[in-house]
């Protein structure tokens, strides 16, 4: 676990009266939820609890039926809030709010290098008249990209990502290259081999210790219990419990009722 008392100023995301329903079925209905109070938060709950939908609502890739989601870049009391739920989804990364995807998402025509350079490139280098900017983008990003490639053992970065695990990893690396201030990870270790899971967890700890707020949705509860400073338990669209991993695990009956036996 990271040190929750660290004095770094972390951004906070406040969800208020946020409702989302699909075909009349309410999937998320949250009166008030603050994310980012501690360095690493977990979001757990059974399938269909609304975890992924909530993450997508924060990113505004899924619109809200009503309610607001606000980013406070310098903490809850510091002012200068940004109403994320009023912004188009492409503006999130500019405010430092970045999310990895639950399902595998990749650019099928881009190589691994391409994909990572795309994440690292500033938008001013991507204008139609900037046709000579590739060397500059490469020079600025290549050291960091090469470090990730080396650290995660990607041996042929000039080719396309082939396996599901490689694509999943690439998704996380793209997020890290965006230098997130608020990082949402939706099942980051699903489909990853064990040694890569450990490396991803290390990397998440590192960015959290440097001031990034991290929220992680994960079905592998060992990851949640070991990594998170605080855990939100979601069921039927609501956060029904909040506490440290130990406190959540202490509610054995509730957790087992939703997740099945053997998870605590």
């Amino acid at each position: 676990m990271t040190d929750p008392t660290a004095t770094l100023t972390r951004p906070v995301i406040v969800v208020q009266n946020a409702v989302k329903s699909f075909s009349g079925r309410v999937v998320v209905d949250i009166a008030e939820l603050t994310l980012g109070d501690v360095p690493i938060e977990g979001l757990i709950g059974p399938n269909g609890a609304g975890k992924t939908t909530l993450m997508r609502m924060v990113m505004h890739s899924t619109g809200l039926d009503r309610g607001t989601i606000t980013l406070w870049p310098h903490g809850a009391v510091a002012g200068g809030g940004v109403v994320l739920s009023n912004l188009p989804s492409h503006r999130m990364a500019g405010h430092g709010v970045v999310k990895s995807n639950q399902v595998i998402m990749d650019f099928d025509k881009l190589t691994i290098w391409d994909s990572l350079l795309l994440a690292a490139a500033a938008s001013k280098s991507e204008r139609p008249h900037r046709i000579f900017d590739e060397p500059r983008v490469f020079a600025e990003a290549s050291d960091e990209v090469a470090r990730y490639l080396d650290e995660f053992g990607i041996r042929e970065p000039s080719t396309y990502a082939k396996s599901a695990g490689e694509k999943k990893l690439l998704d996380i690396l793209r997020c890290l290259l965006l230098k997130p201030k608020f990082l949402l990870l939706d099942e980051p270790t699903a489909g990853l081999p064990e040694e890569l899971t450990a490396k991803v967890i290390d990397e998440v700890r590192t960015v959290a210790s440097q001031g990034t707020a991290v929220v992680i949705v994960e079905h592998n509860l060992d990851v949640i219990w070991n990594l998170c400073d605080e855990v939100h338990f979601m069921a039927e669209g609501k956060v029904i419990m909040k506490g440290t991993p130990a406190e959540i695990r202490a509610h054995r009956t509730v957790v087992e009722k939703y997740l099945g036996e053997g998870h605590v």
Partner: peptide
């Protein structure tokens, strides 16, 4: 290739 993914990386 994947417009929603490009958007999530901050690309307009």
């Amino acid at each position: 290739s994947n417009e929603p993914l490009a958007r999530s990386l901050g690309k307009p």
